[in-house]
Amino acid sequence: MAAVAALYNDFQALDVEVLSLSTDSRFVHKIWQKEELSKMVDGGVPFPMLSDGGGKIGTVYGVYDEAAGVDIRGRFIIDPDFVIRAMEVLTPEVGRNPDELLRQVKAFQHVVKTGEVTPSGWQPGETTLTPGPDLVGKVWEVWKP
């Protein structure tokens, strides 16, 4: 969570709200912030830290591990129309890549705004594609990996 917090300004610049969730209580969140997170990132985690006691929320989002009693690492991008655009779920040992999260948000925002589509690994400023009959079989002319 500290890694996402470190990029919080970038997320705010994109008008993105971040919410974190674990099965810990709000009391534990507070102390984690005070004892550890605030020492990892200046000011600590600036976004709301939610409590999913019992894993009810994690269950409907497909990330609750009943045997362990915790929510595993799952992250979701939700658009302004409240539609889930992306999800990534990892077993707990490997941390996420917040830069890739940022890239995906930028790509989805671009797609929603322009109606274009973004090829693999797209970064702002790079070639986008405009789907249509003329592009069929011709993608190679405008884009290569």
Binding site: V16, E17, V18, L21, S22, D24, V94, V105
Partner: peptide, 19 residues
Amino acid sequence: DYKGKWIILCFYPGDFTFV
């Protein structure tokens, strides 16, 4: 409460875990 904005929802295994 956050409808109308882009939202990132991050689940993680627990406070004070290592990764």
